[in-house]
Design a binder for these strands. Sequence first.
DNA 1: GACATTAATATGTAGCTACATATTAATGTA
DNA 2: TACATTAATATGTAGCTACATATTAATGTC
Lengths: 233, 233
Amino acid sequence: MTDKPRHSWVTIRDSIREMILNSTYGPGDKLPRDEEFAARFGCARSTVHRAMRDLAQSGLVERRRKGGTMVQRDPVTRATLNIPITRLEVEQKGCVYRYQLIRQSVQRSSPAIMANFGLHEARPMLRVEALHLADSRPYIFEDRWICLETVPEINTVDLTRESANEWLVRNRPYSRCDLRLFARPGTKNDSEILQSEIGDALFVMERTTWIGDAPITSLRAVAHPGYQLFTQG
Amino acid sequence: MTDKPRHSWVTIRDSIREMILNSTYGPGDKLPRDEEFAARFGCARSTVHRAMRDLAQSGLVERRRKGGTMVQRDPVTRATLNIPITRLEVEQKGCVYRYQLIRQSVQRSSPAIMANFGLHEARPMLRVEALHLADSRPYIFEDRWICLETVPEINTVDLTRESANEWLVRNRPYSRCDLRLFARPGTKNDSEILQSEIGDALFVMERTTWIGDAPITSLRAVAHPGYQLFTQG
DNA sequence: GACATTAATATGTAGCTACATATTAATGTA
DNA sequence: TACATTAATATGTAGCTACATATTAATGTC
């Protein structure tokens, strides 16, 4: 009744992780070579390799050619945030989603936006300010800049009906995304749009995306007081 | 002078991604089978498989046995946060790190902490309140609960000298981590510890970790006003 | 001894076969 | 028709060989 391991590489990954966790190999220690582990576990090197790749990705070990595999000396907490389309986030909470375009205009990129993109000269961009609502209550206010050179089609989109958030995420996947999270006291402008109080603690997400080296969009999303961002694990 | 592709699977991944980005295959579309792609690219199925795994992991496509591969209908922004040991974070900014234990005591887990862990009954825990400083200015205040059943050794650690953050991360890797981020107005208590003003917008990170099913630690880290959390891409 | 060259080595990748697994589609039976 | 059984199918995994690549260690030359 030997129940054969279904995912051998998972089993091996867990075994090696276990050894690291119980200090058989401590932070900074060098692990045996893949071949050595393969012999020990009675499996192929490729299977150990697979396990090791997973451990390396999760940040527990560090691998270098010829250098071998080392238990990460300064482990980091590596968490994956899933940021869905705002409409889906709202609907997933069982709320009715509504979207409201506040303003849109073509502008040359501001210094702050240029900094986000790492640009040295201004470019024409579409600036879109919009509000996402959940059950008719303000949920997230976004101030977004879209690069017209990279995404000229955005001009053909009716942003009073469809949010730039949704259109972009569906039509313009990105290859790179920078994210910045912080808290900020609400301004008068915030309070009017979000129906919050001046000075309220607001959660802010700034997101900038590129396709290749070409800038797509950079936005600041200010959430209503009480908003929380989770990891899903 | 045909420069042979170094990482064939990377090349193939990028080609397929490119096809998705330029709408050869749109959201919700079914992609050809791996074998089909392999024939098209003139490579082995395993190479396509590797490329596909990467695309699936990044959230661009979804794969199911027999069902095939589908372009993700509702793409999510998937960002990886690297949260280092606080000391390293401070030192990386070129600041002098200092750590200050404020209080420590053995307590039965509070309802909030039990909720974080998903526990139904209280357990003995070590509660540690401590302050991390950067250049002698308050940086992050952490209110941490450590499960004594899972981590009894914590009693042998001199927490006036070494932070629980550092000791745990070095000695007790976790297998699961929940993270919650939000903004909160500073209380009187916050203002005293962080030298901030009452009502300041504070960035809060709540982190709970387990090893297997066993709770390790749950903490609320309140950062000084102006703190920002980045992704590193 | 300093520096360039070469060998040794551990991980990384490509390609192949064979089989496992999950899930849909087809089929048979009451 | 309803439901259980079986076949078909696309992805997932295991194991192997061969070679690529990066980096350290050894060696040779001035």
